[in-house]
């Protein structure tokens, strides 16, 4: 039972992270479309931002994993 709750938690975390990274990706695309010459810089900044958001998501997933295994 705890396992499924943990899975739900991981799912919610993935949802949030997906939204966040999607937004960054979209904005980066817009930025690149507007200024193709700045594509390199935008990409780097995008990856950094995405990595930071992903970090938050990973924390959630690790917590979910921990919860899962504590219960099991």
């Amino acid at each position: 039972m705890v396992g499924s709750i943990a899975a739900i938690g991981a799912g919610i975390a993935a949802l949030g992270v997906g939204l966040g990274i999607g937004k960054i990706g979209g904005s980066a695309m817009e930025g690149i479309a507007r200024q193709p010459e700045a594509a390199g810089k935008i990409q780097t900044a995008m990856i950094i931002a995405a990595a930071l958001i992903e970090g938050a998501g990973l924390f959630a997933i690790v917590v979910a994993l921990l919860g899962n295994n504590v219960g099991a």
Partner: peptide, 13 residues
Amino acid sequence: FALMVRLFANMTA
């Protein structure tokens, strides 16, 4: 810590 978890979780996942 985020560095640690990121690499670990990405590869494990």
